Amino acid sequence: MTQTTTENPPTQKKKAQAAPPEQGIFKSRLLPWLFLLPSLLILAVFLYFPAIETLRLSAYQSSVFLSTERFVGLENFIELLSSPVYHQSILQTLVFMAITVTCGIALAFLLALLANRPIKGAKIYRLLLIYPYALSPAIAGTLWLFLFNPEIGLVNALLGSWFHIKPRWLDTPFLAFFLVCCAAIWKSLGYNVVFYLAALQNVPADTLEAAQIDGAGSWQRIRCILVPMLSPMTFFLVFTNVVQALFDSFGLVDILTKGGPVYGQTGITSFLIYQLYLDGFANAKTGFAAAQAVLMLILVAGITVLQFRIGGKQVHHGA
C-alpha cells in the first residue's frame, strides 16, 4: 500500500495561525469622555481656570483684599518692564538659575558615576544621595537655616573653633546668595542622581569594555562614550532643573532670607517667584503680580525654545 501525504492549502494555514487579539472598542461615544471626565475636571479647576484668570487679572489694577477692579490694559506690563527692581530680580534669577543648573547637573553626574560602581553598601550610598529630594523645600530651608545660623549654627561653631571666624551668612548679600544657591543644588541633587543612575545602568557594558581594551582611559571613556550616550538624559534634566530654579526656590528663599539682604534696588535673593509673592500678597497688588506670572510664563517658554534650538542639536540618540 502506498501512503499519500496531503498538505494543507495556504488558506487553511492562515486559519491555523492565532488571530491577533481584538482591540477594545467603546460601544458608546460618550463612554471614553466619561472616563476622562475626572481628570478633565481636575485640570480645569486647578490648571486651566487659574491660568485664564491670571491672564485676565494682568490687564486689571486690583487687590487681593479689595473687590474693586479697574481695567488698565498693558499698564502693568509697561510698569514692570520699566522697573529697576524687576530688572534686578530678572538678573538675579538668571544668575541663580545658571549656577544651580550647571553645578547641580555636573555634581549629580559625578556622584552618579561613583554610586554606579559595584561596591559594598552601594544601595545605602544611593539612598543617602537621593534622600534630600524627599524633603519639602520648607524643611530643607529650615535645616540650612539652623546649620548656618551666625550665632548657634553648627557651621559657624566649627569655623570659629578651627579658623576663629564666624561669617554672617544671612546678613551679607553675597554670602546669602551663595547659601541659597548651595541649598537649591543640594535640594535637587537627589532628583538628578536618580535619573543619571538609571541612565548609567542602561549603558552597554561591552561598549565601555571595548574602549578600555583599545586603551581609552577613564576620562576618555567618560568624555567620548558616557557623555554622548547620556546626552538625552542631560537634556531632560536641564529643562526640569530650569523649571525648579524658577518656581521651586520660593520655599528656600522664604525660610532662609525672606528675599534679603538688601542689595541695590531690592533684596539679592528676591528672585522672580518671590518678587511675585511680595507684590501679590505682601503689597496686595494682584493685577501687578498676575502680570509678573504672565512674564514668567513667557520667560520659561523662551528658555525652552532656546534649549530645543541649541541644546537639541547636541543630543546624541544612539541606536
Rank of each mutant, 00 (worst) to 15 (best):
Met1Gly: 15
Thr2Phe: 13
Gln3His: 15
Thr4Cys: 06
Thr11Asp: 15
Lys15Glu: 15
Pro21Ile: 08
Gln23Gly: 09
Gln23Lys: 08
Gly24Leu: 12
Gly24Asp: 13
Gly24Val: 09
Ile25Tyr: 14
Arg29Gln: 12
Leu30His: 10
Leu31Val: 07
Phe35Cys: 07
Phe35Gln: 13
Leu40Glu: 09
Leu41Gly: 11
Val45Tyr: 11
Leu47Tyr: 15
Phe49Arg: 10
Pro50His: 05
Thr54Met: 12
Arg56Met: 09
Leu57Thr: 03
Gln61Pro: 14
Ser62Gly: 09
Thr68Met: 13
Arg70His: 14
Gly73Trp: 10
Leu74Ala: 11
Leu74Glu: 03
Leu74Tyr: 07
Phe77Met: 00
Ile78Gln: 14
Leu80Phe: 02
Leu81Gly: 12
Val85Asp: 08
Gln88Met: 09
Leu91Val: 07
Thr93Gly: 02
Val95Ala: 07
Met97Tyr: 08
Ile99Leu: 09
Thr100Met: 04
Val101Ser: 06
Cys103Tyr: 11
Gly104Ile: 08
Ala106Trp: 15
Leu111Gly: 13
Asn116Arg: 01
Arg117Val: 07
Lys120Ser: 10
Gly121Pro: 06
Ile124Gly: 10
Ile124His: 03
Leu129Glu: 00
Thr142Val: 06
Leu147His: 01
Asn149Cys: 04
Asn149Tyr: 02
Gly153Thr: 00
Val155Met: 08
Asn156Pro: 05
Ser161Glu: 14
Ser161Arg: 15
Arg168Gly: 14
Asp171Arg: 10
Thr172His: 01
Phe174Thr: 03
Leu175Ile: 05
Val180Lys: 01
Gly190Thr: 07
Leu197Trp: 05
Asn202Arg: 04
Val203Cys: 07
Ala205Phe: 13
Asp206Ile: 01
Gln212Leu: 14
Gly215Cys: 02
Ser218Ile: 02
Gln220Lys: 05
Pro228Ile: 04
Met229Glu: 10
Ser231Asp: 03
Ser231Tyr: 04
Val242Ala: 03
Ala245Met: 06
Leu246Tyr: 08
Ser249Lys: 02
Ser249Glu: 06
Leu252Gln: 07
Ile255His: 08
Ile255Tyr: 09
Gly260His: 05
Val262Gln: 13
Tyr263Met: 08
Gly264Met: 06
Gly267Cys: 01
Ile268Met: 01
Thr269Asp: 01
Phe271Val: 06
Tyr277His: 04
Phe281Asn: 07
Phe288Val: 05
Ala290Glu: 08
Ala290Arg: 01
Ile303Thr: 02
Thr304Pro: 05
Phe308Ala: 07
Ile310Met: 03
Gly312Ile: 09
Gln314Thr: 05
Gln314Phe: 08
Ala319Glu: 13
